[in-house]
Computed example of a mutant assay.
Amino acid sequence: MGNVMAKLSATHKWALGIVLFTTVAILTGVNWRIFKFEQLLNHGQVVRFALAPVDPRSLMQGDYMALEYAIARDVSSALTPQQMQGQLLLAVDEQKVARFVDFYTDQALGKDQLRVQFRARGNQIKLASNSFFFEEGQADHFSSAKYGEFRVNDNGELLLVKLLDEKLQPL
């Protein structure tokens, strides 16, 4: 290896250094994001969103299900045209099912309240994921989903964990 390095010009050594640095930076970034997701899965607070009906023609498209949340209607009606993203203030009941209270504006959170990030894109409110991927051939099994279960961290980041039936049992 030392003999090969000695034969490289300064320009090639510089280029090799940039490639190595970039590779390490990308791998570090990817692993950091994976670590953050693992932390959210292990330590995030559970919150559940009721699913809203979706056009049946687009409900099952390949190996995923399009998701829409009932809470999105309340958010859409309270949204101003210039609000494209922010955080929602939610109340959570004893079953961890969330309902929209208001937009979060740095107010103190109540006992059973939390905040979550949202984005408005077109006519759709995006919370975390607007689709749920599953194994091929499992469409009928997941078509009875009534709730999405998420983990949320202190910054309001959401991660979809699983779909639940009307009794809040995992599918």
Rank of each mutant, 00 (worst) to 15 (best):
Ser131Arg: 12
Asn130Thr: 10
Ala139Val: 10
Thr11Gly: 13
Ala6Phe: 07
Ala139Thr: 06
Met1Val: 07
Val75Gln: 03
Tyr69Ala: 00
Ala70Phe: 02
Glu68Pro: 00
Gly17Val: 08
Glu38Lys: 13
Asp154Gly: 09
Pro56Ala: 08
Gln138Arg: 15
Ser131Tyr: 13
Val24Thr: 13
Val152Pro: 07
Val92Gln: 01
Glu68Ile: 00
Phe150Thr: 06
Val19Trp: 00
Leu164Gly: 02
Glu38Asp: 14
Lys167Tyr: 07
Arg151His: 12
Leu171His: 10
Lys7Asn: 11
Pro53Ser: 06
Phe100Trp: 08
Val97Tyr: 06
Ala108Glu: 14
Gln61Arg: 07
His141Ser: 05
Val75Lys: 10
Val92Asn: 00
Phe132Val: 03
Lys167Thr: 14
Trp32Ile: 15
Ala50Cys: 01
Ala25Met: 06
Phe142Arg: 07
Asn155Lys: 14
Leu163Thr: 01
Pro81Gln: 05
Arg73Pro: 04
Arg115Ser: 13
Val97Met: 01
Leu159Ser: 11
Lys162Ala: 13
Ser143Arg: 14
Gln83Val: 11
Thr22Ala: 15
Leu51Asn: 06
Val19Lys: 01
Phe37Val: 08
His12Asn: 14
Arg119Ala: 11
Gln113Trp: 02
Arg57Glu: 15
Asn42Ala: 14
Leu109Gly: 04
Gly110Glu: 13
Gly110Ala: 14
Gly2Phe: 01
Gln87Ala: 13
Leu160Phe: 03
Leu163Gln: 07
Asn123Gly: 15
Gln85Glu: 15
Arg48Trp: 06
Glu166Thr: 09
Gln124Cys: 01
Lys7Ser: 14
Tyr147Cys: 04
Val97Asn: 11
Lys162Cys: 04
Arg33Asn: 14
Phe100Met: 02
Arg99Gly: 03
Asn3His: 08
Ala120Gly: 02
Asn155Ile: 03
Ala25Asp: 10
Phe21Tyr: 13
Gln113Lys: 01
Lys13His: 05
Asn31Arg: 13
Glu166Ala: 15
Ile71Tyr: 13
Gln45Phe: 01
Leu90Asp: 00
Asn153Val: 11
Phe134Lys: 06
Phe132Ile: 05
Ser9Pro: 09
Gly110Phe: 07
Leu88Lys: 01
Trp14Met: 10
Gln87Thr: 09
Ala10Leu: 11
Met84Ile: 12
Ala10Lys: 14
Arg33Glu: 12
Gln85Val: 02
Gln169Ile: 09
Arg99Trp: 06
Met1Thr: 05
Val4Cys: 06
Gln117Lys: 12
Thr22Glu: 05
Phe133Ile: 08
